[in-house]
């Protein structure tokens, strides 16, 4: 009897979970996009707000793509972000781990990390320009700082959060500190590191545009600033959309890495 009733129950039990009525999320996302563009087109066409419509922005995007300006600007911005981000995260990992592992390092470094975290990286720009000139260095530096500060805290949290019994388990198997660090602490802290990297990348991308607004001769931020002086709203729109799309793509890439590297986690 039990054998017969069990299969009967299964579809009934799973049906509500499947939620047949709701279409798949990707379709919903697309629908929302189309709707948004439609609303934008209507608003622009009626002249309710003085903005260019999707068509003029689209054609401007094609122009900019055609003459290579968009790619050049996007590459210039990306280069700064990636350079600053990679340097910042690379430094954040050892510093964060030092702070988590050695109370001495924590005591010495924590006040600085906490202090600079409360200063918006953009506020550093004037100082950076004065000290480093107006070429690439101050921009990369500010992005570096933004990425570093958000990653370092995550790395530090990751290390102090490592389950004590895992460290003990490695110790009783004879693992020396070096092995415990490489084979237990680093893998255990990886989920935190990746979250830190995602936040760091977001911070870096947000900072680059602002840095370029202040002083640059290339880059998406510069191009928008330039467009602003000529009241060239379509170009500003193209810049904004490009920034959003690239930021989203980078975030998805890191999310993918996170999924692959931390699939062992019990809950996500």
């Amino acid at each position: 009897m039990a054998v017969i009733t069990a299969p009967d129950k299964t579809p009934a039990a799973t049906a509500p979970r499947q939620g047949r009525r709701i279409p798949p999320p990707l379709l919903l996302n697309l629908l929302a996009l189309v709707l948004g563009v439609a609303v934008w087109a209507i608003v622009a066409a009626t002249g309710l707000v003085d903005v260019p419509g999707p068509l003029s922005v689209g054609s401007r995007a094609l122009d900019l793509l055609g003459d290579g300006t968009l790619a050049e600007d996007a590459l210039a911005s990306l280069r700064r972000v990636l350079l600053g981000f990679v340097l910042g995260t690379l430094l954040a990992v050892p510093v964060g781990f030092l702070m988590g592992w050695y109370p001495l390092a924590r005591g010495l470094l924590e006040p600085y990390v906490q202090f600079f975290r409360t200063v918006p990286p953009l506020a550093i720009i004037p100082l950076a320009i004065v000290l480093m000139g107006i070429d690439e260095t101050p921009k990369v530096f500010v992005i570096f700082l933004a990425a570093f500060l958000s990653s370092v805290v995550a790395a530090f949290q990751g290390v102090i959060g490592v389950d004590r019994t895992l460290i003990d388990a490695a110790r009783v198997l004879g693992a020396p500190d070096r092995v415990i660090f490489l084979k237990v602490v680093i893998p255990a802290a990886t989920p935190f590191l990746l979250v830190g990297a995602r936040i760091g990348l977001g911070a870096a991308w947000g900072t680059v545009v602002a840095a370029e607004l202040i002083a640059a001769d290339k880059g998406l931020g510069y191009e928008m600033m330039h467009a602003q002086t000529y009241y060239d709203i379509p170009t500003i729109f193209v810049g904004l959309i490009t920034i959003g799309v690239i930021g989203l793509l980078m975030d998805r890439l890191l999310l993918l890495a996170e999924r692959r590297l931390t699939g062992w986690q019990e809950r996500r």
């Binding site: 019994t165 003990d168 110790r171 009783v172 893998p187 255990a188 990886t190």
Partner: peptide
């Protein structure tokens, strides 16, 4: 301090969650 000549089985398993069963067993 601890040493491999004294094996410990912990009350809370303490398996390395990122390693497979074989990875855990081979750790030591």
């Amino acid at each position: 301090g601890p040493g491999p000549e004294r094996g410990v089985i912990f009350q809370q398993y303490a398996l390395f969650p990122w390693l497979t069963v074989r990875g855990n067993v081979e750790f030591g």
